[in-house]
């Protein structure tokens, strides 16, 4: 049986004004997998993620989520697609005027009719998952960077979306906390079958969560490798790929 494709990106080109960031990229994300997008800093990982979520309009190419082309579909389809996805932004993007619990509660109040007490309980469960219990009444500006990341993750998880996009979920976290977040990601994937697309550089995270990786490169503005990270580390023909996985400097 062929694996079901949840996201299909076909011949995508991304530009900011004149500057070409990505050129003619195609990739698939299969249902229920954890895909890691990696690559050096500034190679366009966040840009690719924004295009996959439909936040930026591509210069050329299409992005299909569950066979809906989000680059050209109508407003209603786009919204029902958005309902399926949760996004953790690189800068957390928490609303500064709301407390952490209000931030997490926002999508839940919008999309469900649970009573206020139930929502409160649910929010606390979500915060508990990311180890932020007790910080309900804090404002984002009162938290550390790593804590904001986790609060953003809790908000992205709020509705248990089918597809989760995480932009550097473990950046700025200590190793223990990173490992816990990785564990949470794997658990979500196993138990409720969430399809997860992660952008990260952390090698430990990559090896512990990724079922498949896609590596972008700044020079070629495209995908230079994809597959199993453990295999790529040992057997990739591309020097850049091996350097990345073996953490060695450029001048080798």
């Amino acid at each position: 049986m062929e694996k079901q494709k949840t996201i299909r990106v076909t011949n995508l080109s991304a530009r900011y004004d004149e500057e070409v960031i990505l050129e003619d990229i195609s990739l698939d994300v299969y249902k229920g997998e954890i895909l890691v997008i990696l690559g050096g800093s500034g190679c366009g990982k966040s840009t690719l993620l924004k295009h996959m979520v439909g936040l930026s309009e591509p210069f050329a190419g299409q992005v299909y989520i569950d066979d809906v082309d989000i680059t050209s579909c109508n407003d209603q389809d786009f919204r029902s697609t958005l309902r399926k996805i949760g996004v953790l932004f690189q800068g957390s993007a928490l609303f500064g005027s709301m407390t952490i619990s209000e931030n997490v509660a926002l999508p839940i109040t919008e999309y469900s009719t649970l009573s206020k007490d139930s929502i409160n309980n649910l929010v606390r469960m979500k915060l508990c998952m990311v180890d932020l219990a007790g910080y309900e009444h804090y404002l984002p500006s009162e938290l550390s960077g790593g804590m904001k990341k986790r609060a953003g993750l809790a908000r992205a998880l709020a509705l248990n979306p089918k597809i989760l996009f995480l932009d550097e979920p473990t950046a700025g976290l200590d190793p223990v906390m990173s490992a816990e977040i990785d564990e949470l990601i794997v658990k979500l994937n196993k138990s409720i079958g969430t399809t997860i697309v992660i952008v990260t550089h952390e090698l430990d995270s990559i090896f512990s969560v990724a079922q498949r990786v896609i590596m972008l490169d700044k020079q070629t503005k495209g995908i230079i490798a994809q597959g199993d990270p453990k295999y790529l580390k040992e057997h990739s023909q591309n020097r850049v790929v091996r350097q990345f996985f073996n953490r060695s400097a450029k001048s080798e």
């Binding site: 508990c128 007790g134 979500l188 138990s191």
Partner: peptide, 16 residues
């Protein structure tokens, strides 16, 4: 398995 009831209940009690 995703849902750790004991931890959740503890969280619910531990509201500060």
């Amino acid at each position: 398995s995703l849902v750790d009831f004991d931890a959740f209940e503890k969280c619910l009690l531990a509201e500060r």
